[in-house]
Design a protein around this nucleic acid. Sequence first.
DNA 1: CGAGTATAGAGAGCACCGCTCTTGACAGTG
DNA 2: CACTGTCAAGAGCGGTGCTCTCTATACTCG
Lengths: 233, 233
Amino acid sequence: MNASRTARERARAELTREIKEEARRQLAEQGAQKLSLRAVARELGMVSSALYRYYPSRDDLLTALIIDAYDALGETAEAAAAAAEEPRARWRALCHAVRGWAVAHPHEYALIYGSPVPGYQAPRATIEPAGRVALALAGVVRDASPPDTGDELPEGLAAQAGQVAAAAGLDMPLTVLVRALVAWTQLFGMIGFELFGHLVGSADPADEFFGFTVERMADFIGLPALPASRTVR
Amino acid sequence: MNASRTARERARAELTREIKEEARRQLAEQGAQKLSLRAVARELGMVSSALYRYYPSRDDLLTALIIDAYDALGETAEAAAAAAEEPRARWRALCHAVRGWAVAHPHEYALIYGSPVPGYQAPRATIEPAGRVALALAGVVRDASPPDTGDELPEGLAAQAGQVAAAAGLDMPLTVLVRALVAWTQLFGMIGFELFGHLVGSADPADEFFGFTVERMADFIGLPALPASRTVR
DNA sequence: CGAGTATAGAGAGCACCGCTCTTGACAGTG
DNA sequence: CACTGTCAAGAGCGGTGCTCTCTATACTCG
């Protein structure tokens, strides 16, 4: 009886996965706007209404894709950070990994870091995976334990940074944490600009510009320069 | 006969304007995705097919709105830069003006700096207005004539910067120009993160964070600190 | 001034969309 | 075997962008 029940559930899990796969395919081909339940169903050889047994609405399907994207990007970032030793090398690896993922999955990147889908409110479930990259970034900085930068932090900003540090268990100078926050927005700003074509007239292709900026961000945070081989990359 | 001809054309221009106005209203209320030709026509008391005499497609209407948005933001930026004297004050004013416009017109901002509409290719006509903000930014930096930062620029990046400088008539050290480019992406990255809710768990409200970052960017580029009153803002 | 023409909006219609409700088939259970 | 819960299917609703045809009207010119 347990086996039979599992059989049904297996079929269900299988189809759920296939739906998501097909949806991701369409997402990659034509973007989130054009993602249509009917088209997904058509491609899967089923009728549109049947899809609603798996995802109660188009937005719910989108949410599933969003969570998957956050998780995939987060995992990429964590793996890159774990693969290097030196703080600056880890920083570089992480930044380039994030960019690499974004370039490889532009539509999924746009889904999570582009303009939010109007009327769509990101559910609670997306918050945790959304924080993974930022956490990985902050972790790299913390492990490098750079010195206090001496910035004068406005009261409210210091309080916000304190809360972040407490919530994430990040034991580091608040000035460094705030600078890491700045670098965080810089990283995604640059990637977004590249992906969305705003660099076309200036720094496109953006490889060298990206590499340059990553180094300046590392300087900005106070990560030590690499000891031996000083590949500027 | 010229007057009569003008009469017809006037009516046409009037309606064109009204269509754009109504479209902008809907854009501001519900975002680009929900912008519907039928709804615009309904609100204007005409039939949907009649709209096609004014804009051949929904995308063309969107293009008109995009150009308007770029122009509005560019004008805001230019005005802010012109209203101050000291380089750092001009820099501050410009950055805060851009952010202010973005916060006041989130959907229009998302339209131009969010994920591009899939399948939609920005026509040539958008390029020039799109560059206005960047040009205003670069102008402020050039007028401050900060010294060469001494960065080692990779070959390709230096070439790209040289082309930009030549095309825009910006006579300044390439290292400074590249750093201004970095700050440019930083500025929009931060604004985008704030608008799209990515700062919610960390630096939200973002006023102080934004102010802090603007100052660090000014430092980064090499803009001199304000002489007398050193309001950190 | 009157005939002809260009331009305007109206309306029907096509193919698609998200989503709902009902119906009939089927598997698993007592 | 009868029952129950799950599933896909189908029809249908109101909406979308867009096209086509038709008619009324404003303008132009002989």
